[in-house]
Design a protein around this nucleic acid. Structure first.
Lengths: 234, 234
DNA sequence: TCGCAGTCGATTGTCGACAATCGACTGGCG
DNA sequence: CGCCAGTCGATTGTCGACAATCGACTGCGA
């Protein structure tokens, strides 16, 4: 329980709040902390070996990010994820990614599409090796890169909050290997359309690509009834 | 220093954190706290008559919302607003509002467009009376309503963070009355296009409408050099 | 037995004090 | 005179304790 005054083995030596934040966020995004799970501050604080002050600050941030849901004097829970949430998530994803692609194409000879190709190639290799985890990581990087290439900082930050929840959904769902490989292969026509500056095709492909992934994830999703986001008032 | 147990001018008597949050956010959005302004926790806390704990929680939230910028052990400042930020803000606005309109039209006979007309009429009256403040408020409500009518909760929450910064920009800029009246009148063809389900026209009009407002605001904007968001590394 | 008011325990909200960190100042040394 | 190490002050970061609030339990009375 006592921590050495200078423990040298922690590399990213940021503030406690930041480390708590990263820890909790990662746990939520990994599905380790499932939607509906209740967090008790006292418990969690002693569990993490910190006081409640920085923990609470981290919780406020996660509330704002939409990952936690605190009701005053009652408790904090991991935010529920309904089927509707997933549908909204993926429909907004399409909008944001389409925007990114339009911007990339608009500044085309300037931006370098090589990173996309590299990621795609690695993705194929991982798919061949049935390394599903790695495919998912690379897919995330692919879409993150796409957004970043737009050169639109506000879009990047908006994306990151959407992408977080996408990641959370994916952690709670196990797609079939065949589906994931299929999705992986879908990337190449998209890359080519972007490189050739073919906006109609590129935007059509991204919409199709994202929507089909979203349908796969939303399919058969059952909202946890005990953690519904809305209640009818009588 | 002592606050009356029930000071009647604060309506929503929620937690201290919430009240501090609202107070600070409003001050930033009003332009009362200008970009670059430094907040000192101890000062601000005693000024508000609260301790630093809830104040810090509010600050973390405002950081996450992108209104404040805290650098560790150094200080918290109101986030700078560069010309580029404004351009990004308005380009994303177009994307989000276009999406909202597409969704509204898609479910058309179901949604009621009367609120838009009502707001528009009030806007015209206020414009006639040269009540610029009220025109701005109504304009905000108009666009908020448009987003809300999409029935897309995630879009609403994404919008709210964009809309906050838009509000901040507007508070720092004084548009000419003639420009504002012009903008007010632009709303009616948009409403009609939406009601008639004419998606191409409606999306074209919203893009035009928002872009021209954005150009007006970004025009002649000078980034405060002392609060630049990025530094070149040598 | 049923309804209800009071109490109790658990949990969140707030506070004041202390620790850690960083920049600026300062004083000595080459 | 210039430079560097040490110190100091101001500010943020963290802690433990106390206060406020809410739900559930309990026991009294009709």
């Amino acid at each position: 329980m006592e921590k050495p005054p200078t423990s040298f083995h922690q590399i990213g030596n940021k503030s406690l709040r930041e480390r708590i934040l990263t820890t909790l966020r990662e746990a939520i995004l990994n599905g380790e902390l499932r939607p509906g799970h209740t967090l008790v501050e006292t418990e969690l604080a002693s569990q993490l070996g910190v006081s409640r002050a920085p923990l609470r600050e981290a919780i406020q941030i996660l509330n704002t990010e939409g990952l936690l849901d605190t009701v005053p004097y009652h408790g904090t829970t991991v935010k529920a994820l309904t089927k509707r949430d997933i549908e909204e998530l993926y429909s907004l994803r399409i909008v944001l990614e389409t925007f990114a692609i339009r911007r990339i194409i608009a500044q085309l000879p300037e931006v370098d599409t090589a990173p996309l190709r590299t990621l795609f190639e690695q993705m194929l290799i991982a798919a061949d090796q049935d390394d599903i985890t790695r495919v998912n990581v690379l897919d995330r990087e692919f879409h993150d890169t796409l957004i970043a290439m737009s050169g639109h900082k506000l879009l990047v930050s908006t994306w990151s909050s959407v992408a977080m929840r996408v990641r959370q959904v994916m952690s709670l769902r196990n797609l079939r290997n065949s589906d994931i490989k299929q999705i992986a292969h879908n990337h190449i026509p998209l890359i080519e359309a972007i490189e050739r500056g073919d906006e109609p095709t590129a935007t059509m492909l991204i919409a199709q690509h994202v929507a089909s992934a979203g349908d796969l994830l939303a399919e058969d999703w059952q909202d946890d009834p005990s953690t519904a986001t809305e209640e009818d008032q009588p």
